[in-house]
């Protein structure tokens, strides 16, 4: 449910930056393209996303202070190699995203689309690794509410609870980012997004970097805690 809602809000946010695309909108035609305004709106939206995760970081901080040894112990169960690989993948995808935006700004629409596909491929690779990581945890009986987990110390239960909630919510954001790129592609192909009108592409790029930045915090908090 929360996915659908979050998706529902990214789309209008994205589409609102491009009012000329819908001539039927009462004010669409009369409404001036306002680059600064579109950017202001997008940054405010990104801020609310940060605030969403900030609450979780606060919860993490509180419980880590209370359960320092348990957190260290539980973190040993995480696969550092998988976490670091995913970090490299996501950072690379941010690079391809920057290049995609840049290509569009220089008017190379085809190149921009190819780079977006590359970004999505990297996002997919990230999710596949995530899938195997979570799968391995489930096989060891580590999932919220499992008997094995409930037999552990309170601090470790909380650690894994946070792990699944925070990486899960981040994963949802990765998928939303891919959805935003799929929404974007036909607009670049048809030329509606171009060297003169690239606000939507830039905003999708900003969203993707947010996904990246959040992961950069998740890596040390979970994988590198041991």
């Amino acid at each position: 449910m929360s996915v659908a809602n979050a998706a529902g809000m990214t789309l209008p946010a994205g589409s609102a930056v491009d009012p000329a695309a819908d001539p039927a909108a009462a004010h669409g035609a009369a409404h001036h393209q306002d680059y600064e305004g579109d950017k202001t709106g997008m940054w405010l939206f990104l801020f609310t996303e940060f605030a969403l995760f900030a609450a979780l970081f606060v919860i993490y901080g509180v419980y880590r202070i209370i359960y320092t040894p348990e957190f260290h112990h539980a973190a040993a169960n995480l696969n550092v190699a998988a976490g670091v690989t995913n970090t490299v993948i996501l950072l690379t995808s941010s690079l391809t995203m920057v290049l995609a935006v840049n290509a569009l700004q220089r008017g190379e629409n085809r190149r921009s689309m190819a780079l977006l596909w590359a970004t999505m491929a990297l996002a997919l690779a990230f999710m596949v690794i995530k899938y195997f990581e979570w799968g391995a945890k489930f096989e060891h009986g580590l999932y919220p509410g499992s008997e094995h987990l409930l037999a552990m110390d309170g601090g470790e239960i909380v650690f894994f609870g946070l792990y699944f909630v925070m990486t899960g919510l981040h994963g949802i954001h990765v998928l939303l980012g891919v959805g935003a790129m799929l929404f974007l592609l036909p607009r670049i192909k048809s030329g509606r997004q171009s060297a003169t009108n690239y606000t939507l592409t830039e905003n999708v790029g900003l969203y993707w970097h947010l996904v990246d930045v959040i992961w950069i915090f998740l890596l040390p908090l979970f994988y590198l805690t041991n």
Partner: peptide, 11 residues
């Protein structure tokens, strides 16, 4: 003449 994002407003 309107808010900055009229369609977001409707959403």
């Amino acid at each position: 003449e309107d808010v900055s994002f009229p369609r977001l407003n409707l959403a």
